[in-house]
Nucleic acid binder design. Structure first.
Lengths: 236, 236
DNA sequence: TATAATTATTAAACACTGTTCAAAATATGG
DNA sequence: CCATATTTTGAACAGTGTTTAATAATTATA
């Protein structure tokens, strides 16, 4: 009954490798042919298995979709992490907004998966999913710092952060789901960035001098990310 | 060849009646059992026809879904129309925000259909869909009036209106698609309304006196809709 | 190494989808 | 009544996710 330890370890490792192969295949299909091509049978073809075999590695399709979701979240978090090194909280805030929107527009399918599609939602609720909201925590932290430093009026940072997230999410998801017919197509990108700029300006108008400049930082513009926190903190 | 005119008219009328019956059945299923229950076969059962017969009234399922979408839009537009009678543009603006959010939360499936689901999008693009965006036009018009009257700082009304729409759409769609796990459930409604209030306050801070009051109107609060435009315009 | 016990994989089915199409039923016009 | 349109059916097609008994492969034991 005690079984060979080495072989069980190896078998477990092989199981995980197989899970990885399945996920890679799913991801490959997702990237190259879109979500509707991510079917159990297509995945099975890709890994040269039978459809039924997939189910000894994943309970159901939603589990696979959720796993793809996690991979997408890793990508986004990877883009956000370096932003946290920006010393000035307001600069960081504008960078966060810019990077988030850029991510959504460059990886529309990922964004759809993470924040719009209904398929992975149940799994997100069942098992928690903190990784998926690291970005929000970074945003909230930055908003709080902006308030502390006087860049933003002092209110509930949670609500302010959520409002900002909502605005960017709202605009990009209306775009992704093709609900912008009342606006000429060539203006789409302009208006997406414009709406974020509008909010940044609205939030900071109490501090600006009318030229859209404050404390030497161009409000709602694209500041160069130069001031770095951490090791170089004392240098600057 | 000249055919009986009366009977062709009647036949056409009967066709439309049948289309209505199909849509009603689809709507009934949609309301009571959700979108996933709106299948051709279930609809056919409901109207006591064969699945194939549906296709002599609608080209494909998306055409039915889009038709449901239009019905939902009529409901929303019906809620918005009376708001346009509110004389004060800023009162009207806050009312629009409140009513829009209330609609989204009370009729989540309708909202999903109109602004989140991908199914009806292709048809929306093919044939135009002005009715679906009347609400936006009303919003934009109101924002413009607010700017003209000095309630809002003068900028591009199109962008400002889109920013406001994005914020509300973003928050309610994150809620509808269950992407708010990082916020305790009992705070959801509070934070949804809070984010809208935050933006209204941000947009009007340049005019307020710190008490959140301006020109006798409580900013970002829920003003009573009393001042009515139109016939009663000269009365007030 | 041969045999027993696990585990992995397959093949086939099930219950669904949306959709098409020839044939049958029905209604209309002469 | 008969020929012509039109409507409706029934059956099929090509998919979907998922389950399950049987088979193949692997591992553990004697």
């Amino acid at each position: 009954m005690a079984k060979n330890l080495k072989s069980t370890q190896r078998r477990e490792r092989e199981r995980e490798e197989m899970q990885e192969r399945i996920l890679s295949a799913a991801m490959r299909l997702f990237i190259s042919e879109g979500y509707e091509s991510v079917t159990i049978r297509r995945i099975a073809d890709e890994v040269e298995y039978t459809p039924g075999a997939i189910y000894s590695y994943f309970a159901d399709k939603d589990e696979i979709v959720f796993a793809l979701c996690k991979k997408a979240a890793e990508l986004l978090n990877g883009l956000f992490k370096p932003l946290m090194l920006v010393a000035n909280p307001f600069e960081r805030l504008t960078a966060i907004g810019r990077v988030y929107m850029q991510f959504a527009l460059e990886h529309r399918s990922y964004y759809d998966l993470m924040f719009i599609m209904s398929a992975p939602a149940p799994k997100m609720v069942e098992e928690g999913w903190d990784e998926g909201f690291q970005a929000f925590y970074m945003l909230r932290e930055t908003v709080q710092e902006c308030m502390d430093a006087g860049y933003l009026p002092k209110t509930d940072a949670n609500i302010a952060a959520f409002a900002m997230w909502s605005l960017v999410h709202g605009s990009v998801s209306l775009f992704i789901r093709q609900r912008l017919h009342m606006i000429p197509e060539e203006q789409h990108e302009v208006i997406l960035h414009g709406s974020l700029g509008f909010m940044m300006q609205a939030m900071t108008r109490h501090l600006t001098n009318g030229n859209g400049a404050m404390n030497g930082i161009a409000v709602a513009a694209h500041p160069s990310v130069e001031a770095i926190r951490g090791k170089k903190k004392k240098k600057s």
